[in-house]
């Protein structure tokens, strides 16, 4: 694939560095269905990359492989130079707790927990004490302009508020990579835009890289560059660079 070249965009960490997360030649099939057929992908620290492509092209599968949720049938994923598939399941889980954050399309908040507790959950899973975790969670809710829903359960807040809570939850542990799979899929365009603004702003502030799976172009426009997945292969359009 085409090597990375700096975009026109402002101060990004130097591109001469090795990528933060890199996948080469990923293959993954579900039964007879090939979901990935030799996909390559790279992302550097602090970069926001949109993953686009038609439905069923393998975007989500790529994201799951990158995050170490799914083991690819072939190919490798390197995170900070370490190969993910060489790690045990427990180590990969630990990595996801400490270094990765996730935002999905819907149904991701624990319905019994309050929004505040939901945001605090990954922090607590990583071993932070409850008091500290909830304080940080409150700060993040504030930052995503949903401090008022802290005490409510997910069932009692709107979709847009819930999605912001989910973004707060993904960012609260200060991950190095945020994986977002159709984060605005269930939102109207105004709410979707606001959520994207808050997500990208917060990611830039904390220096987190974002892998943004979407088929909405206007959401992809929040990225620094895009990768198109077609038939299980990822391409970085040369003209965009």
């Amino acid at each position: 694939m085409t090597p990375m070249t700096p975009t026109a965009h402002s101060a990004r960490p130097g591109r001469s560095e090795a990528p933060l997360l890199a996948a080469t030649g990923l293959h993954k099939s579900y039964g007879a269905t090939p979901a990935l057929a030799g996909a390559d992908f790279q992302i550097h620290g602090g970069e926001i990359v949109a993953v686009m492509g038609p439905s069923g092209s393998g975007k989500s599968t790529l994201l799951h492989c990158l995050a170490g949720i799914v083991s690819p049938d072939g190919g490798t994923v390197h995170y900070q130079g370490r190969e993910l598939s060489a790690l045990s399941d427990a180590r990969r889980s630990a990595l996801r707790r400490s270094d990765f954050g996730f935002v999905f399309q819907f149904g991701q908040l624990v319905p019994e927990l309050t929004c505040l507790e939901n945001v605090a959950l990954p922090l607590r899973l990583a071993g932070t004490r409850r008091r500290d975790a909830e304080q940080r969670a409150a700060e993040w809710l504030e930052r995503l302009e949903v401090a008022d829903v802290a005490g409510k359960r997910p069932g009692e807040v709107s979709g847009g508020q819930g999605q912001r809570v989910a973004i707060a939850r993904a960012l609260a542990p200060r991950p190095r990579v945020v994986f977002a799979d159709e984060p605005t899929g269930a939102l109207d365009s105004l709410n979707g835009e606001r959520a994207m603004q808050l997500l990208t702003a917060a990611a830039r502030d904390t220096g987190a890289a974002v892998v943004l799976v979407t088929h909405e172009v206007r959401v992809a426009a929040y990225s620094d560059r895009e990768v198109v997945v077609r038939d299980g292969r990822a391409t970085t359009p040369a003209a965009a660079l």
Partner: peptide
């Protein structure tokens, strides 16, 4: 679905 999301977050099975 929720369980899968929790796994993505790195939740331990024992938890």
């Amino acid at each position: 679905r929720l369980l899968a999301v929790l796994v993505a977050f790195g939740t331990r099975r024992s938890t």
